[in-house]
């Protein structure tokens, strides 16, 4: 079932899926995220939530209302922590939903666990007395605890340590039966962990099915300025220096291609 649709560029999000939007910084990723979250009017087209445009007024006097079911973790979300304790910070969103205490408790501790923080250890601490990465995790827990229908994450892995970054898609897994996730990222490796991928380049959006297909088309990704696994970055740098390398290959074959081309050039001399 489709929960979100951006008619301006053909982005659709189905219930429970993880969709990534891959683009270099400055490619308009954040603007797109804000549009999908109804925090900004779309420049082109309409954004529909469950088939309706929540920003359309039914009567002229009616105030505009963005749906609570769509939540966004903004880029420097850790700067917006404000409560006295970690618990209160994570609970802030769900409190707007007037949930019973037991449900609040379940959501907050569940969200803290999901971001690999020990609820007992951190719940009463001040969010200001945390490390950079811990603050980011608390900010993330805050949006997870809302259990929104759609969760939009703008570069959520900045500041996270390598393991947590690599396991980030696992960390999102328990959420999937509740929320659809839109993951904005500059890294092809991260993007390829999603079910479906949209690539943003030159202001337009194209869809790719799965990580393999994404990376096999590495030559198209190079000029977009997104972060690629090292072998593809190297291939790009070598092509700029006149190397001829195979297109439509996986990383192992590309590496072989580099070795072969080096040998050929070396032999010619």
């Amino acid at each position: 079932m489709q929960v979100l649709e951006h008619s301006g560029n053909g982005i659709t999000v189905d219930k429970g899926e993880v969709v990534s939007i891959l683009g270099a910084p400055g490619s308009g990723k954040t603007r797109l995220g804000l549009e999908l979250a109804f925090l900004r009017r779309p420049e082109v087209g309409l954004v529909l939530f469950q088939g309706e445009n929540p920003l359309a007024r039914k009567r002229s006097m009616q105030p505009l209302k963005r749906p609570r079911e769509v939540t966004m973790l903004v880029q420097n979300a850790e700067d917006q922590l404000f409560a006295r304790t970690v618990f209160d910070d994570v609970a802030f969103g769900p409190r707007q939903l007037f949930l019973p205490d037991a449900e609040m408790e379940r959501r907050v501790t569940g969200a803290l666990r999901a971001v690999r923080l020990d609820p007992a250890e951190v719940r009463d601490r001040s969010p200001f007395a945390l490390s950079g990465g811990e603050r980011r995790r608390v900010a993330l827990a805050g949006v997870l605890a809302m259990e929104p229908v759609v969760l939009i994450l703008d570069e959520p892995t900045a500041n996270l340590d390598p393991r947590t970054r690599n396991e980030f898609s696992d960390l999102l897994r328990p959420l999937r039966h509740k929320s659809a996730i839109v993951w904005l990222t500059t890294s092809a490796r991260e993007a390829s962990q999603a079910d479906r991928i949209y690539v943003l380049g030159d202001g337009h959006v194209s869809e790719v099915h799965g990580g393999d297909e994404l990376l096999r088309d590495w030559r198209r990704l190079i000029p977009t300025g997104v972060e690629l696994p090292a072998v593809f970055e190297l291939a790009g740098a070598l092509e700029r220096r006149g190397f001829e390398l195979p297109a439509d290959v996986d990383s192992a074959d590309l590496e072989d291609g580099i070795v072969t081309e080096w040998q050929r050039r070396h032999h010619d001399r």
């Binding site: 390598p162 393991r163 947590t164 970054r165 690599n166 090292a230 072998v231 590496e255 580099i258």
Partner: peptide, 20 residues
């Protein structure tokens, strides 16, 4: 330490093994 493999290092090692 929750570290990762340094990608360029692995790549360089593997290219060296290939004779580059």
């Amino acid at each position: 330490l929750a570290l990762d493999v340094p990608e360029t290092f692995e790549l360089a090692a593997s290219l060296r093994a290939g004779g580059v």
